[in-house]
């Protein structure tokens, strides 16, 4: 299960979500600018406020880190 925590006006978040869409990776798109509970969840999981944060089956990645994402999702 892939979850992406992001805000609508964050350019790096847009780049990350395009990266996943281009590779038909399904993900839950969580907008932390509106949803305070999700915001707390993201901060607890990642230990910081920066977006984007990606949760891949419990593994947390901060920022658009292509190498880590490719490894965890076993994609190119």
């Amino acid at each position: 299960m892939v979850k992406v925590y992001s805000t609508p006006t964050c350019p790096y978040c847009v780049t990350l979500k395009n990266f996943l869409k281009e590779r038909n990776i399904q993900f839950e798109d969580i907008d932390v600018s509106q949803n305070e509970i999700a915001q707390k969840e993201m901060i607890e999981k990642s230990g910081q406020y920066g977006v984007p944060v990606v949760d891949i089956d419990g593994e947390i990645i901060i920022g658009f880190d292509q190498d880590k994402i490719k490894k965890l999702l076993k994609i190119e």
Partner: peptide, 18 residues
Amino acid sequence: YRGKGVSFCATCDAPMFK
């Protein structure tokens, strides 16, 4: 404190400072 208060992108992180 990068990402723990320090930011270079308000359009990204402003919502976290409500």
